[in-house]
Amino acid sequence: MFRGFYTSASAMVANQRNQETLSNNIANANTPGYKQDQGVKRAFPEMLIHEMGSKSIPTKRGLNIPIDRQIGSMSTGMYLQETVPSFTQGDVRETGNTTDMALVQGEVPDEEGFTFFNVQNEEGEARFTRNGNFTVDGEGFLTTNNGYYVLNEDGDPIQTGGMEFNILQDGTMQIGDDEELLGVTYTSNSSEFIKQGDDLFEAGEDAVVADARAADGVNFEVQQGMLERSNVDAQQTMTEMMSNYRSFELNQRVMRAYDQNMQTAVSEIGRLQ
């Protein structure tokens, strides 16, 4: 009985954490370049149940035959193993702002390959983003909307000197008489990129990254005055939230049934004593 109680409790915890993931997706449905998270649920190892005992056969000498019969397997619960970002291209919308940029991915040689803008976090470490809602700070550097420097192909902050510049589709920035190449990174396995908040990603230990322009078969465009929208499907996410909530309620009812059965059992045992 207690085993079933814990099985239902573990499912409720997994559903609650998955609900938090779905709620975060909905909250970022209008965040440019946001990649929705998908919860991965797994079951705990199943337990194999055996019937072990003996059967007495009425003979003169009293024969006992041992019994070891397999009954079947029993689930021991589930848990939310991890949340994985879904790297799919979001819709592109026009904003008219010269500092807004949409990174539109074309054909790539790898199924899970994806491209990112190169940026620098507050510790000076290289990070990656899909949010092209950029701006220019008081010193004339191109930054993200959270104040992180946007980097060029050499990994240096880009000095624009103002809001007037032109961007070609290959990521070449024409700033007056000078030109800068916007830093764009390609990874063959986007699942190795880890979310860090503020729309930033960090390359994991096993991630393979390369300059998108030098990678074979990688095609992309940088569109000025445009923004990539979130890839969250609000209707589908709301449907998943309702389904997840119903699963939570179902396991809650199972726990109540176990609780009532235990109360009944304790009452009956008390009467017998």
Rank of each mutant, 00 (worst) to 15 (best):
G4R: 07
G4S: 09
Y6L: 06
T7H: 03
T7E: 11
S8E: 01
A9Q: 12
S10V: 04
A11T: 08
M12F: 12
M12A: 11
A14L: 08
N15A: 14
Q16G: 08
N18C: 02
Q19E: 12
Q19T: 13
S23A: 15
N24Q: 12
N25Q: 07
I26L: 15
A29T: 09
N30G: 11
Y34F: 15
K35T: 02
D37K: 12
Q38V: 11
V40F: 09
R42S: 11
A43E: 15
E46A: 12
M47T: 14
M47I: 08
K55F: 12
K55T: 13
I57R: 05
P58D: 13
K60F: 10
K60G: 15
G62C: 08
G62Q: 12
L63N: 02
P66Q: 07
M74A: 12
Q81I: 06
Q81R: 11
V84W: 00
S86L: 15
S86T: 13
T88Y: 09
Q89I: 01
Q89M: 11
D91R: 15
N97W: 01
T98E: 09
T99H: 01
T99K: 03
M101E: 07
M101A: 09
A102Y: 10
V104W: 00
G106V: 01
E107P: 02
V108K: 03
E112F: 14
F114M: 11
F114Q: 01
T115F: 03
N118R: 14
N118M: 15
N118S: 13
V119L: 10
V119Y: 02
Q120C: 05
Q120N: 02
E125C: 01
R127G: 03
N133A: 15
F134S: 08
T135F: 00
V136P: 01
G138C: 02
E139T: 06
F141L: 14
T143R: 14
T143D: 03
T144A: 00
G147A: 13
Y149D: 09
V150H: 08
L151V: 06
G155C: 03
G155R: 09
D156I: 05
I158P: 00
Q159E: 08
G162D: 02
M163S: 08
M163K: 08
L168I: 01
Q174P: 05
D177E: 15
E180Y: 11
V184W: 01
V184F: 05
T185H: 03
Y186S: 06
T187C: 04
T187V: 03
S190W: 04
E192A: 11
K195Y: 00
Q196I: 10
A203R: 00
A203W: 04
E205D: 04
E205M: 03
A207W: 01
A207Y: 01
V208Q: 15
R213M: 13
R213G: 08
A214L: 11
G217T: 07
G217E: 04
V222I: 14
Q224R: 14
L227E: 02
R229L: 14
R229Q: 15
N231V: 05
D233Q: 10
D233P: 07
D233K: 10
A234M: 15
Q236G: 14
N244K: 00
F248Y: 15
E249D: 04
R253V: 07
A257S: 13
Y258L: 00
Y258Q: 10
Q260H: 04
N261Q: 13
N261S: 11
Q263E: 13
Q263A: 12
T264L: 13
G270W: 00
Q273H: 07
